[in-house]
Amino acid sequence: MFPKLDPLLHSELRLAVMSILAGVESADFTYLKTQTGATAGNLSVQLEKLTAADYITVEKGFKGRKPCTTCRITPAGLEAFNTYIQALQAYLPTAQK
């Protein structure tokens, strides 16, 4: 029986955001926007969903005079991300595992 895929991560933009945050200590909103190619509005919505699930934390502040939004993956988010990857591998044909 195939494991259930986390519906929160099984979305292109949210998965891309989690893939970026899994490899860095933190990332700025504008950096995530450029890397994913998403619009600011769509990215904000997806970040809110990930925050609500406690997969990431979003910190709003200032760098000098510029406002900045810093996103970080949480331990729960990292665990969910790893579980998701393991689950995905179960779907692959044996030859590709």
Partner: peptide, 22 residues
């Protein structure tokens, strides 16, 4: 997304991000 597409997205995003930072 199919599982293959998801894995490809993860690999590509992580790789591009790593290279961009370096």
């Amino acid at each position: 997304m199919t599982p293959q597409e998801s894995l490809r997205l993860i690999t590509e995003t992580m790789n591009n991000n790593r290279l961009d930072i370096i």
